[in-house]
């Protein structure tokens, strides 16, 4: 059994795409309430790792336990786990044929069987929290990128998840919209949400993360506190990456 204070427990995780070895023996434990930032060069496997946690990608070796449930390709009630694990995507993936409010109440009503009025009340509360309560009746296409990403965060929160996964949430945004999304993520972190973020925003990592995990070529190279990660990286690959990211 997993230790009760582990929200996510990954051990010896392996994943192949054909002959390409995308994840190599990855071990990662995330405690309840912990905020973990995963970074690394592109193609390092960080997105694959985070997408294995809710089984958008299926691993082919090792074990993953999320909130005490072991999951793999054969898990029948994967959707029970997914209810409790929110995910925010790089390209928002809001449903373009529904208003923002409809986006937020769809899954609570269908999956959690919440009544429409309750779902709307919860959704509005989260939309207000991300400062787009006044946009609730608009369609995603009518919103700016930053607004869309905040709506996507509100949609995930409306399911009242216990863990939030962020997959490069600011990479597709125009530079001036990055901070409004990061602000929302910071305030979410302050409320004690368990968070796993794949991001290149090193400022965010320094400010919010309890741990920073650095991945390269499918392996976890470095795993430690932000202070040790930024100020004295132990691995030379980490140092090289940091020098490239922080140079600009």
């Amino acid at each position: 059994m997993s230790s009760p204070d582990s929200a996510i427990l990954i051990s010896a995780l392996n994943k192949h795409y054909g002959t390409y070895h995308a994840l190599i023996n990855v071990d990662l434990a995330v405690a309840h309430g912990q905020k973990v930032v995963i970074c690394g060069p592109s193609g390092s496997g960080k997105s694959t790792l985070i997408r294995c946690i809710n089984q958008l990608e299926q691993h082919d070796g090792g074990t993953i336990r999320v909130l005490g449930t072991a999951i793999d390709a054969d898990t029948d009630d994967i959707n029970r786990v997914r209810q409790d694990v929110g995910m925010v995507f790089q390209h928002f993936n809001l449903f373009p044929h529904m208003t923002i409010l409809e986006n937020c109440i769809l899954a609570p009503m269908l999956v959690r069987k919440v009544s429409r009025s309750d779902a709307e009340a919860t959704a509005m509360q989260y939309l207000e929290k991300v400062h787009i309560g006044d946009q609730a009746s608009k369609y995603p296409g009518q919103l700016s990128g930053g607004q869309q990403q905040r709506a996507a965060i509100a949609r995930s929160l409306s399911m009242q998840p216990r863990i939030m996964l962020f997959d490069e949430p600011t990479s597709a945004l125009d530079p001036e919209m990055v901070s409004e999304v990061l602000e929302v993520m910071v305030s979410l972190a302050a409320e004690g949400m368990t968070m796993v973020c794949v991001t290149h925003e090193m400022g965010f990592a320094r400010r919010v993360a309890d741990r920073v995990v650095f991945m390269d070529r499918g392996e976890i190279v470095e795993d430690g506190s932000p202070e040790s990660f930024f100020d004295n990286p132990r691995n030379e690959r980490t140092a090289k990456f940091l020098s490239q990211v922080l140079k600009h």
């Binding site: 786990v81 209810q83 929110g86 995507f89 449903f95 269908l110 999956v111």
Partner: peptide, 30 residues
């Protein structure tokens, strides 16, 4: 329909039937 649409619906724990009926088919018809 972009792959992300199905992934977003999956990530919220929606079943195949619900994803098809509420997310994928309406967009496919459009």
């Amino acid at each position: 329909v972009p792959k992300g649409q199905d992934e977003a619906a999956k990530a919220m724990g929606m079943s195949y039937r619900h994803r098809m009926a509420y997310v994928l088919l309406p967009q496919a018809f459009r």
